[in-house]
Design a protein around this nucleic acid. Structure first.
Lengths: 209, 209
DNA sequence: GTCTATAGAAGGATAGAC
DNA sequence: GTCTATCCTTCTATAGAC
């Protein structure tokens, strides 16, 4: 493979990534991808054979980008409180730079459930779980850890996923969306930690009734 | 318009609702809709002129279904705590019966931002906000109410939206998805109320630093 | 109001020249 | 490796018979 090959293939791949992420598999057009890459439509098939194969390559790369942020994000010496603050700061910052990524992944996975297998291996859920369960200051019951994790990612993901809607609704109450998101990076960890510090064992009891 | 007209139009509309909700505008096929309605493809155009017009009608109806649940959901005489528990119970129950609805709305709005205008009027955000801000037991600062609302809907929506992914991840830790959702209807309000009772004025201070 | 048949356009994919 | 030209299928939409 020569140097020019690599450059062209890369140009195609980058263009395809943008188009697929923006429009999804169904609405994306091979012509649009070729145009954005500045080459001919036939070249797409020369390098990637079919739309489906090109999409799969792009999906794998985007899934990698999405879940890279989770693996090993926590330093061992952090307290749970520090870990939670650190996560919101890093994760929401990442999402603001990749606002279309979460909805792309969720939509495509919903359309084709087989895609779950392609990304489920990318996140070591057991490791992350173990890093949230042990702490000296805050006692988190084992059974609560999944709920805590889902709560944290929900609070981080949802305001980005629902941006157009949320922006319009906030506007009606006189709040600016970007300002809201900035506040949220502070509010979200405060809120979660406040709930945990209050009485996490009480949460457990009520949960198991 | 005769009785048969109404029946056929309704059959088409119901079939279109199912197909569009499942596949989205781009992937939906007029032939699929005709098949599901048990009629001919040409009849779709007789009643709705174009795919776009049929879609818009369906979108409006689904947006209505989605946001009906918000308007006037709270009884005046409830405490904030009761309102929060009531919301999670009703809303997550609704989402379990309409699991594809949220992602449909979010995806289509993202694809075509003009759709926001069609649903923004359906939810009286000012009214909902006012119903959450006044309470005798829990003091919630005015500026925190939007964050509280977004937190609540995030916790309710996200586990449903991310079902395929979440199901696979939970399985790796030995947790059943349906059981998790059942638990969550109890956990989510407990968690939110725990955070609020702990120290909501402290949240405010840290938020505005 | 409902059907069959088909127009007309668009999109994915390939053949073949250079 | 890259291009032009074209095939083939699919899809929306319409014409016209009943």
């Amino acid at each position: 493979m020569t140097k020019e090959d690599k450059q062209t293939e890369q140009k195609i791949f980058d263009a395809a990534t943008e188009i697929f992420e923006e429009k999804g598999l169904d609405a994306a057009r091979m012509q649009d991808i070729a145009d954005r890459a500045g080459i001919n439509k036939a070249l797409l098939h020369y390098y990637f054979r079919s739309k489906e194969k090109l999409f799969t390559a792009v999906f794998d790369a985007l899934a990698e980008r999405m879940f890279m942020k989770f693996a090993g994000i926590f330093e061992e010496e952090m307290s749970v409180e520090e870990k939670i603050r650190y996560f919101f700061r890093k994760h929401m910052d990442f999402l603001q730079k990749n606002p279309r990524l979460p909805l792309f992944i969720l939509t495509e996975v919903n359309r084709n459930p087989k895609l779950v297998d392609r990304l489920i291996g990318k996140v070591n859920i057991i490791q992350i779980k173990s890093k949230l369960s042990k702490d000296k200051d805050i006692d988190i019951p084992e059974e609560l850890v999944p709920h805590l994790m889902v709560t944290i990612v929900s609070m981080s993901f949802f305001p980005i996923i629902a941006k157009p809607l949320l922006k319009a609704l906030l506007q009606k109450t006189g709040v600016d969306y970007n300002h809201f998101i900035k506040e949220r990076i502070q509010f979200a960890p405060d809120f979660v930690i406040s709930a945990l510090k209050n009485n996490s064992s009480e949460l457990k009891t009520q949960n198991n009734e």
